[in-house]
């Protein structure tokens, strides 16, 4: 059994609860144990870093230090949380004075940020640690009749100086996972583009235009569904889908799945168990 500390993203505890719940169904099947980090706090969502760079460093040093205390790597299933925490880690590792300042405060809780735990995405654990062959061997319901559009989202790819796992211009990890589960990936130009999430409340029209382009391409390519490793992308592409498509005068729809749901389906769990019925577009 491979053990990891599992970071609880705010959105997975509110709007996209089905993401974490579906992991609970299959983690043991794949020899994984995710220890939920209930003490962890919001990473700052790609905002705290400029509102207050020092609080941003403190909060995320603590998130990582909690995993380090258990001697485990920190696994994240939201792209923005991943990019944010990894950005903080890079800053702490490169700035000894900041690390010292933060550690002087973390002492109160008996914590120390050392930089020993890696911060990684759930998708990377599946592809790199479990491995594609092992996943293939566990598949009971291959997704062989499905044409799937892989939407990576931004913060699992960019900035590549912080992420570094996939080539941001030609990512492949999600495509590989889809194929290991028996599905067929479609050529998808928007696979490494943006969903528009981070400006939904600030520049809604622009955000919805961005989302509509990604949805339109998948619809035109006759994909059966889009799959994304990010709950924020999911929220836009599923929750805001009808609004985005209406703005773009497109009369159609397409379901959007989390990777945890796609894995669950291929391992034999039902759409109902996995919470797929809770999506706005089913």
């Amino acid at each position: 059994m491979k053990r990891y500390a599992y970071y609880l993203s705010c959105i997975n505890e509110s709007m996209t609860k089905e993401l974490d719940r579906s992991i609970d169904f299959w983690q043991k099947d794949l020899g994984l144990e995710f220890v939920k980090l209930h003490e962890g706090t919001c990473c700052g969502g790609s905002n705290l870093d400029y509102v207050s760079p020092k609080h941003f460093a403190l909060v995320n040093a603590r998130n990582i230090a909690l995993a380090e205390k258990m001697g485990l790597d920190l696994i994240v299933s939201c792209n923005t949380c991943l990019m944010t925490i990894r950005t903080a880690k890079k800053k702490l590792d490169e700035t000894p004075a900041l690390k010292q300042e933060v550690n002087d405060i973390l002492k109160q809780e008996g914590l120390e940020y050392r930089g020993t735990s890696e911060v990684r995405h759930l998708l990377w654990v599946l592809v790199d640690d479990v491995g594609l062959e092992s996943i293939k061997a566990k598949v009971t319901v291959p997704l062989k009749n499905y044409r799937i559009a892989p939407f990576y989202g931004c913060h699992i790819l960019r900035p590549s100086t912080v992420l570094g796992r996939d080539n941001p211009l030609a990512p492949s990890s999600l495509d590989q996972l889809i194929e290991a589960l028996g599905g067929q990936t479609i050529p998808y130009e928007h696979k490494n583009r943006c969903c528009g999430f981070h400006t939904l409340l600030v520049a809604e029209e622009e955000s919805l235009n961005v989302a509509a382009e990604a949805l339109e391409e998948a619809i035109n390519a006759k994909a059966d569904f889009i799959v994304t490793p990010c709950p924020l992308c999911h929220t836009v592409l599923d929750g805001y889908q009808s609004k985005a498509l209406k703005q773009a005068n497109i009369d159609s729809s397409i379901p959007v799945f989390h990777i945890s749901e796609m894995v669950g389906l291929a391992l034999g769990y039902t759409a109902k168990q996995l919470g797929i019925k809770r999506h706005i577009v089913c």
Partner: peptide, 11 residues
């Protein structure tokens, strides 16, 4: 404030 943090510019 309209920047959506996609990092495509930087990349």
């Amino acid at each position: 404030w309209d920047c959506t943090h996609c990092y495509r510019c930087q990349e």
